[in-house]
Nucleic acid binder design. Structure first.
Lengths: 341, 341
DNA sequence: CTGAAAGCGCTAACAT
DNA sequence: ATGTTAGCGCTTTCAG
């Protein structure tokens, strides 16, 4: 059990050629008309000595690594962590392993990461792409690599992608706020040209304009550091004292918003009503519970991995590209309900 | 740029032997006394055509895959996700990539996962081990594989490990509750024989017994499903109406506990004081903010990866095993402060 | 039905 | 100082 045995070891032990062993191990015994009893012998022996083919050698030979590269914005963000969890599970079940990394929405870092993945000969890519990565993704697909984007897509790049209906989601949430009677509804989000962000802004804007209300948008530079989110947010709040409702564009901004509210002693929903994008334990437990736009995590993960596996299977087949758009669920909780005055 | 070029392609193009190229690329030019100008030429050409050595072939040849296997209990748990994030970063910086998976604390699943990692020739293992995995870990170390355990260790297996001072953490937290004047302090945790859990129970028990108070422990079967945590918890609460403070053994149980409190209309800390293990955004934002035992995430990740990298470097050197025990930080918030009656 | 042999791309003795 | 060559362990023609 100590020594790593190779296919030739077992071939020798059984006095058979390694070719035969290889065929048997790869289920091509039938096809090659290898005697059932030989198959049996080999299988038993392999089992017995615990022989495992060297997957590195196999990969080198076949060009397949049975690895999927997963690039999320930030694995420590619960949204991405949950999706990664589900994807991981499905992937392993299908004989693929996942190597992952966080892009931080940093284009340069992402480029390097893609390079590394290429280096490693991953068989397929799952990416929540940052801006400016179009060329690299294109070069990937051009070289025939299966790529599935999620959470957002790249407008001018043809790939499969899975996302949610961002525009309707924020439109709907904003409408809800308006219906409740709020007049100065702000939208706070990250400054970004990513498709999902643009749509979220649009959804808000459409609803507000349709209602003839003032558009109040605060864009914050993307950053993981909490302070750099909270500072501009605090400023915004101070400068716009008339705001009576806020829609937060991401879970991270949402929680920061909650902190600001606490810090400033604002009550929800009496002083300011709140809705956040992404559902999240903290929103459910907060008092009052925070209304949230819940993304269908399971469905997203399911679709992502299904689409990718499909491409991996019929590698050649010109399965046409798919853009899947999933529905979100507005979970209405107390934070967005107008106090019956 | 389309065709994958190999080392021999570039050797031919430059009319040099591939050995020379190999040496240059691996920084052994000096050592091999290769002329500076040749080195220059080669480097420039390599850069120009964007040649990247095939890491698979390299791995096959050298037996090193530059991959670290990371096995956490559940990547979607914020504690593990945060650690994974930090480990990932440090690993990539050092030229290692991470392949990861969640064990679910399932021994059988973990065994298979370890097998898979072995198959993939990962160079080192970072594991938060479930119970019953002793033999497999041992066989790993016996075969000379670098292994670092974290969050817990295996009592009868000699490995490096990084953990926190669980016993003192719960002891301290319990003392705090007692000092506040609470008389019926319960401890709710997962039923487990893992070292960290055992110590957490002991810490609680020691403090309680030292104070001559009644020991009130509720153990819940490990499960991800929220309902299967909440049901027994609810039952426990109903059967022990005299409890005036609870210490929760993990973040997951903690948030479930919060939900139960809300559901039962219990006020914190007037009806029941609360402390949870693991700090977590939700605890900070909750009203009242929840006292929590904060683990030093950064330090844990730092230590884990440092220890592993060290072992990876001096592979042979008999660096003696390290058990690192880190301190936690009891973040005292309102939920555990006795209302001045 | 089975075996010999080539070769995936790279490294490292061993020449020269 | 640079080139030759033998594998790492596997798959896969091509011949028996």
């Amino acid at each position: 059990m100590k020594k790593k045995l190779s296919i030739v070891d077992i071939a020798n032990a059984l006095n058979v050629s390694k070719t035969t062993i290889s065929f048997i191990l790869n289920g091509r015994a039938q096809e090659k008309r290898i005697s059932a009893e030989l198959v049996e012998t080999v299988m038993k022996y392999v089992e017995e000595v615990g022989y495992k083919p060297n997957s590195l050698a196999k990969s080198l030979r076949t060009g397949k690594s049975n690895t999927i590269g997963l690039m999320v914005e930030d694995i420590s963000n619960p949204f991405f962590a949950s999706i990664a969890r589900l994807i991981e599970e499905r992937a392993y079940k299908n004989g693929y392993k996942i190597i992952y990394c966080s892009t931080d929405n940093d284009t340069q870092k992402t480029k390097e990461l893609i390079d590394m993945f290429r280096d490693r000969h991953v068989d397929g890519y799952i990416i929540s792409p940052p801006e400016g990565i179009e060329e690299d993704i294109e070069s990937l697909t051009k070289d025939g690599m299966p790529v599935v984007l999620f959470d957002r897509h790249l407008p001018n790049v043809d790939t499969d992608f899975i996302e949610i209906d961002n525009l309707f989601s924020t439109y709907n949430a904003t409408r809800h706020l308006i219906d409740q009677g709020f007049k100065n509804v702000a939208f706070v989000t990250f400054a970004s040209n990513q498709t999902q962000m643009i749509d979220r802004v649009k959804g808000y804007q459409n609803a507000i304009e349709a209602a003839g209300l003032p558009v109040l948008i605060k864009e914050i530079l993307f950053n993981q550091k909490e302070e750099l989110i909270m500072n501009p947010l605090r400023e915004f709040m101070i400068q716009n004292t008339n705001i009576d409702a806020i829609l937060f564009g991401t879970n991270h901004i949402g929680t920061c918003g909650l902190k600001i509210m606490q810090e400033m002693g604002k009550n929800t929903p009496t002083d300011i009503a709140i809705i956040s994008f992404d559902d999240y334990e903290v929103f459910e437990l907060y008092s009052p519970p925070v209304t949230a736009i819940a993304q269908p995590i399971d469905e997203i993960a399911d679709n992502v991995i299904s689409v990718l596996l499909e491409k991996l299977d019929y590698h050649s087949a010109s399965t046409k590209l798919k853009g899947v758009i999933l529905k979100t669920n507005l979970k209405i909780r107390k934070s967005s309900i107008k106090a019956s005055a």
